[in-house]
């Protein structure tokens, strides 16, 4: 091998390595900082005590409770709309709905929080509440679920639909028995992404659910809800170093939740890729 070729080879691989590092570095930087800052408070106390006693229990429970609400509300509305758009909507309605969905996808979450505050918290008189927060978050993530559902359904091969239709199955049964099962992993991964986004959001919740040091209640309205991102935001502004450590710990906990959601999503996608490959239609 000539010296120039060798040099070019080394240079190329160096650049590749640097590019990989450039992607990994920010993530590692964030992870390192957050975990390093939270080291002094890391321990079981985070899971057993509430935010007024150096723990995060109420905030973790509140975040999970909010995620559950988003899963139900945005899940049902989003998947339903996606199915409608992919399978039933006339072209005109589909285009209009997709336009609004795109607008919604680009909406700054703080604007959404503001609108939810004005209409739900104030005008509807719900006060800072679970329902207002779930609705604000759901509207925020709805476009992702609608889009992934629609795409997942459209990816189901026409050959399967026609095969089923050729056997005299009704539209409804074709949808339930033939089209939805192979599309399900795609739909699920969209829902997971939506939950991951919800986990990290602060702006829409800041205006809608308030905060409390108590455990979240099951009340839909008039009861404030604790959640992790609020702890990050508020505790960092407190003079007490312990409170600031807790802020970092809340950040670490959000990241952990995110990683778990991403892993679940990966698992589902991997299975779907395997299934799709076998379909080979």
């Amino acid at each position: 091998m000539g010296i120039w070729r060798r040099l070019r080879n080394v240079g190329f691989w160096t650049l590749c390595g640097l590019a990989a590092l450039a992607i990994a570095a920010p993530a590692l930087w964030v992870l390192y900082t957050v975990f390093h800052q939270s080291l002094p408070v890391i321990g079981w106390r985070l899971l057993t005590h509430n935010t007024n006693a150096g723990g995060l229990k109420n905030a973790i429970l509140g975040t999970l409770w909010l995620l559950f609400g988003v899963l139900v509300l945005a899940g049902i509305v989003g998947v339903g709309s996606g199915i409608y758009l992919a399978e039933f909507a006339p072209r005109g309605i589909g285009q209009v709905a997709r336009f609004f969905s795109d607008v919604l996808a680009g909406m700054p979450s703080i604007v959404l929080g503001y609108v939810a505050y004005i209409t739900l918290v104030v005008q509807a008189g719900w006060g800072y509440s679970y329902l207002a927060g779930v609705i604000a978050l759901s509207v925020l993530v709805l476009p992702y679920i609608v889009k992934t559902t629609e795409v997942a359904l459209r990816q189901v091969p026409t050959a399967l639909r026609e095969g089923a239709a050729g056997l005299g199955m009704t539209e409804r049964i074709i949808l339930w028995k033939i089209v939805l099962p192979p599309a399900l992993p795609g739909i699920m991964s969209g829902v997971i992404v939506a939950l991951a986004i919800s986990t990290g959001e602060l702006a829409p919740l800041l205006f809608t659910v308030g905060f409390t040091d108590n455990n979240p209640s099951l009340a839909l309205t008039h009861q404030q809800v604790p959640y992790l991102t609020s702890v990050i935001f508020t505790n960092l502004q407190l003079p007490d170093p312990q409170a600031q450590y807790l802020s970092a710990a809340a950040g670490a906990m959000s990241l952990l939740l995110l990683v778990i959601l991403i892993l679940i999503g990966r698992l589902i996608t991997a299975r779907s890729v395997k299934a799709t490959r076998r379909m080979a239609l």
Partner: peptide
């Protein structure tokens, strides 16, 4: 019966 076999998954 179609041109390419299209069994359900």
């Amino acid at each position: 019966v179609f041109q390419r076999a299209n069994p359900f998954p």
